[in-house]
Computed example of a mutant assay.
Amino acid sequence: MYSPIPVLNELKDLYDSTRDFLADGFELYGYDDKERYFPRELDDPEFLSRLIPFAQANGTGSMYAIWRSSDETDVALLPVVVFGDEGGEHVIARDFRDFLPLLGHDAEITVDHDSAYYFREEDDDHSGSHEMFVEWLRERGLEPAEDPDAVIAAAQEIHAERFRAWITPFYAKVGWA
């Protein structure tokens, strides 16, 4: 079993069955492999215990993680965050089910200190396995996000302030705040 999230296990099976990208820049790696994702400076056990990295978010090394914002035992119900490879970290989905349609938009996420967003030109080609992924989403009652900014805004309205308050002391400890 890849993870305790059944739909993420199904996504991993789909991901492993194709040689093409399911979504632009998205690559699944080891579930909860903290050594791969976080720099050594951020080795505080309290910090690491609240984040579950699971995928690369774009071609430059940004990554997706689940934030243990509460003691919720169903990890799929926790918010999804993105950490930018050049800095910036943001809540992007209220839970894993909200996250999947963002991937269906089929655009790399851009992350900076002030925002995270998906941008796609009308004439951009889709990833090689995009249609297979869209079919997979629909089998689960989901559709690709037509307005990813709205999904991110909804998640940030609920979680952004708490996430910022939680992460700031860890960054301050290593001199990043």
Rank of each mutant, 00 (worst) to 15 (best):
R94P: 06
P53S: 03
A93P: 02
N58D: 10
D43Q: 08
E157W: 05
Y15I: 02
P45F: 09
G104W: 00
Y31Q: 10
I66C: 12
D24H: 11
L11C: 10
Y64R: 12
I167Q: 13
K12D: 07
G104M: 01
D20Q: 07
P144K: 01
R19D: 11
L48V: 11
L102K: 05
R138Y: 13
E10S: 06
N9T: 05
L51V: 02
K173N: 03
A155F: 09
L8H: 03
A65M: 13
K173F: 09
L137M: 01
R140C: 11
D24G: 14
F170W: 06
R19C: 12
F133N: 02
S62H: 06
V111F: 05
H126G: 04
D95R: 08
Q156N: 05
M63C: 08
W136V: 12
R50S: 13
G59I: 03
E35I: 14
S127V: 04
D33W: 07
P169L: 10
L28Y: 00
A155G: 11
D85C: 09
E72L: 02
R36T: 13
V75A: 14
V174A: 12
D16W: 01
Q56F: 00
G59A: 10
R162F: 15
D32F: 12
K12Q: 13
Y29N: 00
H130C: 04
N9Q: 08
S49R: 14
D149T: 00
E135T: 15
A155D: 04
E135D: 15
H105F: 04
D20V: 08
S17C: 11
V75D: 12
L14R: 04
G104I: 02
P101R: 13
D74A: 06
A153G: 03
